[in-house]
Write a protein that binds this DNA or RNA. Structure first.
Lengths: 252, 252
DNA sequence: AATACTTAATGTCATTTTGACATTAACCTT
DNA sequence: AAGGTTAATGTCAAAATGACATTAAGTATT
């Protein structure tokens, strides 16, 4: 084996890295009919005053999902969100801080990106909570061009996340994560319509959504609307696991 | 902003990492009707003599796809394979080398895993080529339990890769990567059958495969078979890109 | 040379799924 | 009580699917 060669090839052949996490936080704006994501304004160089994904460095004794949640709360106040690893970005030029200042001792700064789905109830940012959730703001995914600047390679991370969300929504039922626990079929449909960017015929959507067998009708119905109240449903996670285990398809 | 706090919180708050890449290399064994993957035998501690995914440490000036290809060639002799990032594994306990020996200066060793698809022509390992492609061996994905030991968290990486391959094959045409450039529809069907693990009706498969519009029939046909020779096709990548751009679905 | 054999390629058809639209139901407002 | 609004269900033609039958084009056998 060549391991010996590796080991003896001088002290510092292998790179030294710092890891960061970055979170692409998605939320739906039902009023504006648009998919939004959460950015924070950077307070320091590099990219001072630019918008950036909430994130930060990873501790030595911390796994990246924990780091993602910690930094998300620190920067935005959000907790208990659906979170999944997106992709790891390690372009040589992505972070100019490598090799200087506090990072003088590392060759590279690599980011493990996550994406998060946030329900409307959490959509409103806690301006209050002791943290510095200030300077966090929702942007429509179609309004990002209008931003003066976006830090690091975050534009690319965002593009990757949008593609992943669209792709995943079509065959994994994650749309619920963007809704309250109780929801109507119309609300669920609008999740799909906003994310996928096209109209879905309501009665056909109903047929398919209910046909998956993971929507559980609840006792109560929509309240105080000036028309026939809609049935409320919840996502039956247990049933979902059963169906996944038995090799079921959730394409919608 | 809390950035100031971060910066001033003492010299070594943030973790120091080494990065490795690990490659899950898939190949098809048409004779045995099975999906195989390539493992190498470790020559040193930890996990000495265990089987492991081909991989290695990432250099400071090297991006992970390059590191993956470099280590893949070094350990197995394989070059020019289809390669895609799989997932980043960063469990606190995944690599016992962190903090000792040559890695005394790092807190963690994190692996960015890739998966590779190999065509039958490359399937035979170059035993000759100057490198140390020795001790690399193909294993059926269903025979992994019989292995005495599998290094690090590589079992989990492999499980993740198999799930990804199955999922991706169903809606992205990557099956071609497991075949020669020219192939018959039967060969393509067998790729799907072996990977997905179920029989597909041949005439219906033909209808769908040709219906996608990305298979280009070639001049020549199958040679010297004791029956009607099959048409040879190639994957039309250009046409594929067009269709992707126009929002086409490649579910099979 | 005729026949058998094998797999490729195409065709058929009943069933299921889909997409578009119509109808009825249940609430509120006036 | 009538009208307005959206929920929920029903209808139906068209398209897609799955199972199977038939024809095509080679080699091997007699």
């Amino acid at each position: 084996m060549e391991f010996e060669t590796e080991k003896n090839a001088g002290a510092e052949v292998f790179g030294r890295f710092r890891l960061t996490v970055d979170c692409v936080v998605f939320g739906l704006d039902f009023a504006a009919n648009s998919l939004k994501l959460l950015l924070v304004r950077r307070g320091e160089e590099p990219f001072k005053d630019c918008w950036a994904l909430p994130g930060g460095f990873v501790y030595g004794d911390e796994e990246t999902p924990d780091a993602a949640r910690r930094n998300l709360e620190r920067k935005t106040g959000l907790t208990d969100v659906f979170l999944e690893q997106l992709y790891t970005f390690d372009s040589l030029t992505r972070d100019p801080r490598a090799g200087s200042g506090l990072n003088a001792d590392v060759d590279r700064i690599v980011s493990v990106a996550y994406y998060a789905l946030v329900s409307p109830e959490k959509h409103r940012l806690q301006e209050s909570g002791g943290g510095n959730a200030t300077d966090a703001k929702w942007f429509g995914v179609d309004d990002l061009e209008s931003l003066d600047c976006l830090a690091f390679d975050h534009e690319r991370i965002i593009e990757t996340a949008i593609a992943r969300l669209r792709g995943k929504l079509s065959y994994v039922p994650i749309g619920f994560e963007l809704l309250e626990r109780k929801f109507t079929l119309k609300q669920l449909r609008r999740v799909y319509e906003i994310v996928l960017g096209r109209r879905l015929e309501s009665s056909n959507f109903r047929r398919r959504a209910l046909g998956m067998g993971i929507l559980e009708p609840l006792e109560d119905r929509q309240q105080s609307v000036a028309h026939r109240p809609a049935q409320l449903y919840r996502f039956n996670e247990e049933r979902y696991r059963q169906l996944v285990a038995s090799g079921f398809d959730f394409e919608l």
